[in-house]
Design a protein around this nucleic acid. Sequence first.
DNA 1: GTTTATGCAAATTCTTTGCAATACT
DNA 2: AGTATTGCAAAGAATTTGCATAAAC
Lengths: 137, 137
Amino acid sequence: MATPLQILQSHRLRITDCRLVIIQEFLDKNVALSHADLEDTLNNKFDRVTIYRTLKTFLEKDLIHKVLDDSGATKYAFCSHGEEAHGHNHEHVHFKCEKCEETICLEDISLPAIPLPKGFEKKEMNLLVQGICEKCH
Amino acid sequence: MATPLQILQSHRLRITDCRLVIIQEFLDKNVALSHADLEDTLNNKFDRVTIYRTLKTFLEKDLIHKVLDDSGATKYAFCSHGEEAHGHNHEHVHFKCEKCEETICLEDISLPAIPLPKGFEKKEMNLLVQGICEKCH
DNA sequence: GTTTATGCAAATTCTTTGCAATACT
DNA sequence: AGTATTGCAAAGAATTTGCATAAAC
């Protein structure tokens, strides 16, 4: 289990407070987080803009990935360690609870192959399941 | 095949130019459209706000549904006729092309059941496949 | 010392709200 | 006539950009 420091180092990113704290957040909460979520939690410790730029950098370095959401807010989740290991796993299954609004990655669930029409080439698949989560039942 | 007029009537919505034209757009282009897409096509024929409100109304009446997208823009697609017939089909498969950026509904493809962990209850499923579409190959 | 990240201000874009005028039934 | 929809103005989110300061390497 890598630490925030190790994660930054292995991605050749400069070590800064903001980056360390945001990675820690993703590791602690195991849910998808939006910019607003982070801003709330970090409670003005860092500038709004810095958080945006940190997320952008992490996205570019494949440290986090976008999580689909129909609420309009862009959410991000930490890329799991399996993904880091062998390049990238472009199959994501997420579950969003309609009550608590939390989105979690269902990492153990693998997506079956989808038979695409002729001429279509798949690069990435994202499945979003919405419903009621275990905690809210 | 229902006309825009018939569609509005069957949903007990008032017949207005903006609504007719937007439904026609959805029927013509068979792709998911964002507010900006509509604004561009309708080229200032209707106010920005009116388009927002029309989309909201159509969403509430289940005439259109949100299409997941990781670009930040909210996209909408017309609900197919099958859906209208028996309430609502909450399983959507969409394909988004990374080149032309178009998103189409793959209506014929059905989603396999996903085995969720205990305590999770599924209400809706959305699969977004990204890659290269037939036209862009 | 050089490069990169941060904070602040401000600009853009996206979306919603209030209200009077207009169109629909 | 009565109710719902539209357009305009303006407010409110969400996100991006520029630039000087500060921190990382």
